[in-house]
Design a protein around this nucleic acid. Structure first.
Length: 570
RNA sequence: CGGGGCGUAGCGAAGCCUGGCAUCGCACGUGCUUUGGGAGCACGAGACCGUCGGUUCGAAUCCGACCGCCCCGACCA
């Protein structure tokens, strides 16, 4: 590909609103352009790199028996009503009507369509197991997109779906994907850690997220150095300290003016934060107020809380009026004397005696509050966030908190979708059975961005060979002065083309500085420089982008490399 | 949705406070020179100053509303 013809332009200056290296570099090097918030065009270079990511994924999913197909982006809303997600999912799903007034949605994911196809096609256990997958556009109207390609609203995802006869089959499909993902990320040059994760709107029983550690990551990971524990903070557990063993003392009210936070309260009373109870207020799907109580030295984990309070439905932060309606006072709140609130207490707080808790009266707290004696919890569960340094639940060593970007996920869905759509097959014993599904996603653009995050330097992108849009970047220098430069460069380009291994050829009439700088910015693994100087030195200067290592090879040698009789240097 | 910030040429910015000819660098076009690390000179093209409304003799500048984008939070497979 001649750079003079390529639909592309590089930017000399960093775009003002790009913060992450991948965003900055993909923009500057002419791989992507933004159309709107969270909506990007892939320019020719960007598409080529994405196709290479796609091909790696395709090969690895094919290898575990996946069958590629393609499902639509626009779905009849009816299908989503059948699964129950039409109402369960909020405004992140785009809904509209077609000309006939039928309700339609833009696909956020494809479990419904797969279940619908299974209902149509799978009649017998003999047809299972099956893994199907496709690369398809998803649209999710995220409340906030960010980080260039890291979090967008429209993106292409590889989503695969396993359909199995029983749990053992699902375990196998899940394991196959786990292993395929490890191979995919290794080939992409990404170091990942698989963490246990919340199942979210997918439902089901088990999920892992493959995470790349990155300071711009949106998820917090809880990791143990020994490698025996890794989980998303949303579900991470830890060993909790043993509360002091003491007798329950009589409750007493104490004036604590201006202490609306645990820190100010503990300081005012001269006690540790671990001797206080913290209240957080939410409103459940059914409108009830949910009060979460944790010890003051811990924080409420909303995912765990939502799972513990499942009985009352999804949670939203409560308004002041709603808290007061339940006879509690924000800043000085506790379930003592409250009414009509669903109370979830953390297991540690429940076991900790004589805590300081809100008196539900501005400027006052209660000493020696004891859960069970002074108020009754509806649920006692682990609802706190793991903290840096908390003991690992597996081995007791201190846990670490790290930021990560989710590059892939795998879910055990179970039979939720097949039951909802009544997709069933006849088992060996003649009984109607709902197959068990799994779903497995990898976002292409996000992975591309993560590759750049992991493979760049101060000059530009440094593509791993497997992802590079072109294996080599040929630069001609001094072409105007020396006809032989053009001759050699053109011949090398021709040779590569004829061998079906197209390279990027900078034939532009630009200064050497511009061309070399662009070559480094664009990031192909090998830079081939043809100039009067290189010809005088015996041929073509070959630079490995990753190491900066340079050597001069004869024209014939380079021709051989490009025509494939020798591997293309990488 | 809450908090903060920003919208001036393709990119990056100044001008706005204190109203009075639309400014700079890079990029772009033409010509000459130059050619191994973002070249030089000359000439040139390119902006309804995000949109709408208001104030004013006069608005990029002041006021109001709206739209868009970025960052933090909430949210999220």
């Amino acid at each position: 590909m001649r750079l003079s013809r390529l639909f592309f332009t590089s930017l000399r200056d960093d775009p003002a609103d790009a913060e992450m290296p991948s965003h900055r570099l993909l923009l500057r090097a002419g791989y992507i352009r933004q159309l709107g918030s969270g909506i990007y065009s892939l320019l020719p270079l960007g598409l080529r790199a994405t196709k290479r990511v796609e091909q790696i994924i395709r090969e690895e999913i094919d290898r575990i028996g996946g069958q590629e197909m393609e499902m639509p982006v626009v779905h009849p809303a009816e299908l989503w009503r059948e699964s129950g997600r039409y109402t369960k999912i909020g405004p992140e799903m785009v809904r509209f009507e077609d000309r006939a007034g039928r309700d339609m949605v833009l696909a956020m994911t494809h479990e419904e369509v797969v279940a619908d196809l299974v209902r149509d096609i799978v009649k017998s256990y003999r047809q299972l197991p099956v893994i199907v997958y496709h690369f398809q556009t998803k649209f999710r109207d995220e409340p906030r997109s960010r980080g260039g390609l890291i979090r967008v609203r429209e993106f292409v995802m590889k989503d695969s779906y396993s359909i199995d006869v029983d749990e053992a089959g699902l375990d196998r499909s899940y394991r196959l994907h786990y292993e395929a993902y490890e191979r995919i990320f290794r080939r992409l040059g990404l170091e990942t850690v698989a963490v246990g994760a919340d199942v979210g709107i997918m439902g089901g029983s088990e999920a892992h997220e493959f995470m790349v550690l990155n300071e711009f990551g949106e998820d917090t990971l809880v990791l143990c150095d020994t490698g025996d524990y890794a989980a998303n903070q949303q579900i991470a557990t830890m060993r909790k300290p043993e509360p002091s063993a003491e007798q329950a003392l009589p409750k007493e009210e104490v004036a604590t003016p201006g202490t609306t936070t645990i820190a100010t309260l503990a300081a005012f009373l001269g006690v540790g934060e671990d001797r206080t109870a913290k209240a957080a207020f939410f409103v459940a799907g059914d409108g009830r107020l949910v009060t979460a109580i944790v010890r003051g030295d811990f924080e409420v984990n909303e995912t765990k809380l939502a799972n513990a309070a499942k009985a009352v439905g999804g949670l939203r932060p409560a308004q002041v009026e709603q808290i007061r309606a339940a006879r509690m006072e924000p800043g000085y709140g506790s379930p003592v004397g409250a009414h009509d609130a669903f109370v979830v207490v953390d297991d540690l707080a429940a076991r900790s005696p004589n805590l300081v808790a809100g008196a539900n009266r501005t400027g006052f707290h209660l000493r020696n509050v004891n859960v069970g004696r002074d108020f009754k919890p509806d649920v006692v569960a682990d609802i706190t966030n793991a903290r840096e340094g908390d003991p690992c639940p597996a081995c007791g060593k201190p846990l670490k908190l790290r930021k990560g970007i989710e590059v892939g996920n795998i879910f055990k869905l179970g039979t939720d979708f097949t039951v909802a759509l009544d997709a069933a097959f006849l088992a060996e014993d003649g009984k109607r059975v709902h197959p068990i599904m799994g779903s497995y996603g990898i976002g292409l653009g996000r992975n591309l961005a993560c590759v750049v995050e992991a493979h760049h330097d101060d000059k530009g992108i440094v593509w791993p060979a497997e992802v590079a849009p072109y294996a080599a970047h040929l630069v001609s220098i001094g072409a105007a002065r020396e006809p032989r430069v053009v001759e050699v460069a053109e011949r090398l380009h021709r040779v590569a083309l004829d061998a079906g291994r197209e390279i990027l050829y900078d034939d532009r009439d630009e200064s050497p500085g511009v061309k070399l700088t662009d070559a480094e910015l664009l990031g192909m693994p090998t830079i081939l420089t043809v100039s009067p100087r290189s010809l005088a030195a015996g041929g073509v200067e070959v630079t490995e982008r990753a190491t900066g290592e340079r050597s001069t090879r004869s024209v014939e040698e380079v021709e051989a490399m490009l025509s494939g009789t020798e591997p293309v240097p990488a």
